[in-house]
Amino acid sequence: MERVLGDDHSVTLANRYDLTVWRRDPTHPAGIATALEQLLEDVIRVVGPDDDLTLNIQEDIDRFRDQATDADTP
């Protein structure tokens, strides 16, 4: 996708989001949150802070951070 549409195309960013979530390791939710935070910077820069993709990524980051915190709590 990146070669055809470019790194900053909204479809490329949406595909990066999908791949990040689909390839996650369920035993390491903090890792997925970190990967999504890196993607979030690009998404905000390209589509803005109020776009649905931005909001979905932010919700997922919160969810995976909560899961990581729960996993660390005995």
Rank of each mutant, 00 (worst) to 15 (best):
G48C: 03
G48P: 05
Y17E: 12
E2R: 14
D52M: 04
V11I: 15
G6I: 13
E2V: 15
D50Q: 06
T73R: 12
P29R: 07
P74N: 10
I32K: 03
E2A: 13
A71Y: 01
V4K: 15
L53C: 06
S10L: 14
Q58N: 09
D52Q: 07
R24Y: 04
D7Y: 12
D25S: 06
H28V: 11
Y17F: 14
D66C: 03
V43A: 12
P49S: 11
A14W: 13
I32S: 09
I57W: 00
L36R: 11
L53Q: 06
D70F: 08
R65I: 01
D72P: 00
L53Y: 02
G6Y: 12
I44H: 04
R23K: 10
I61S: 00
D8T: 13
L55P: 02
I32H: 04
E37I: 05
V43K: 08
Q58C: 09
P26K: 01
D7T: 11
R65M: 01
Y17W: 06
D72K: 10
V21S: 03
Q58Y: 02
L53K: 07
R24V: 05
P26G: 02
D42A: 11
R45D: 05
V4I: 15
G6M: 13
A30S: 13
D51P: 01
I61L: 00
D50H: 07
T20I: 08
Q67W: 03
L55H: 10
A68N: 01
T54L: 06
V11T: 15
L39W: 09
V43S: 09
T20P: 08
L55K: 10
Q67V: 00
D25C: 07
